[in-house]
């Protein structure tokens, strides 16, 4: 064990270099394979080559989608991203506001669990997408897609919070009790901090599912476009290089939002003294 910080940094860089290199190689290989497959289909006039455009054409479409308005929709990719982010954010807030108190309640009290559990278990396996036609008509095209996203985020958050509450070590509770903590102190100082990392895991999983849902929700009916709408719209007219551009944007947005959630998680756990 050396204490030289320079050496440690050097080592860290070296380790990371291999990781960066591997990441770059992995993406390069993926793109090369994609290009070769596209070339194979195009050279042979397969009849579905248009469905697998060249990576370069997709890159060009990606840039164009940000630069130019779609003549039919009058929107650029920026507008679509704003519309989707707004939906994700609203859905996220709704899901958190309902799932966290409910999860704490059901995790803490057996009776609450007995009441909530059957409904949760019944609805949880139903894919949020199955609700789309109903939500769109009942809640409308503004809140319908938001509700789909909220539903997608809701269950991972709820279950993780419940699990978090149940995982609080009894010795911690006993210790707090012996030290004279009352119920609310125990909740604030023991249960809540202990549950936070679980909550954040739920949030990260939920956001991923939220993005999966938004695409489908926007495909059915919505106001103001959205990246999911863009994907469906361009696929309908057969402009597949644009469809892939939309898919890439969704992927990047997903990484971005879970990244932000990860940062918040780190901050929170440090602030609550978990790390």
């Amino acid at each position: 064990m050396t204490n030289d910080p320079l050496k440690a940094l050097n080592k860290k860089l070296k380790d990371n270099w291999t990781q960066y290199l591997l990441a770059v190689i992995s993406i390069a290989v993926f793109i090369a394979a994609w290009h070769l497959y596209a070339a194979y289909l195009h050279e042979n006039d397969s009849g579905y080559q248009g469905y697998i455009p060249y990576p370069l054409d997709v890159a060009e479409a990606l840039v164009d989608s940000f630069r130019y308005e779609d003549p039919n929709l009058g929107l650029t990719m920026f507008d679509h991203i704003a519309a989707s982010l707004e939906r994700i954010l609203l859905g996220f807030v709704i899901a958190i506001v309902i799932a966290v108190p409910l999860g704490l309640l059901m995790g803490t009290f057996r009776k609450a669990d007995a009441v909530g559990r059957p409904i949760v278990e019944l609805i949880r396996p139903i894919p949020p997408l199955a609700w789309i036609p109903i939500f769109i008509v009942v809640l409308g095209m503004l809140w319908g897609p938001v509700a789909i996203v909220a539903l997608g985020i809701f269950f991972p958050v709820l279950l993780n919070v419940m699990f978090g509450v149940r995982s609080v070590e009894p010795t911690l509770m006993d210790a707090a009790k012996t030290l004279g903590a009352n119920r609310s102190q125990m909740f604030l100082k023991v249960v809540l901090p202990f549950t936070t990392p679980y909550l954040m895991t739920g949030v990260k999983v939920g956001l991923g599912i939220g993005w999966m849902c938004i695409v489908a929700a926007e495909m059915v009916g919505n106001y103001g476009g959205g990246v999911g709408y863009f994907i469906k719209d361009t696929a309908d007219v057969g402009a597949f290089e644009y469809m892939y551009a939309g898919m890439i944007v969704i992927g990047l947005l997903g990484i971005l939002t879970t990244g932000v959630a990860g940062l918040i998680e780190g901050r929170l756990s440090r602030w609550m003294g978990m790390k």
Partner: peptide, 27 residues
């Protein structure tokens, strides 16, 4: 899309998608 996938031999459909997907995606 089903034409492109080789699942349809002859089909009835609107001329708009028939034109757009043939030109855009070489179906």
């Amino acid at each position: 899309d089903k034409f492109a996938a080789g699942e349809v031999d002859i089909g009835y459909l609107g001329c708009a998608p028939a034109i757009q997907k043939h030109l855009n995606a070489q179906v």
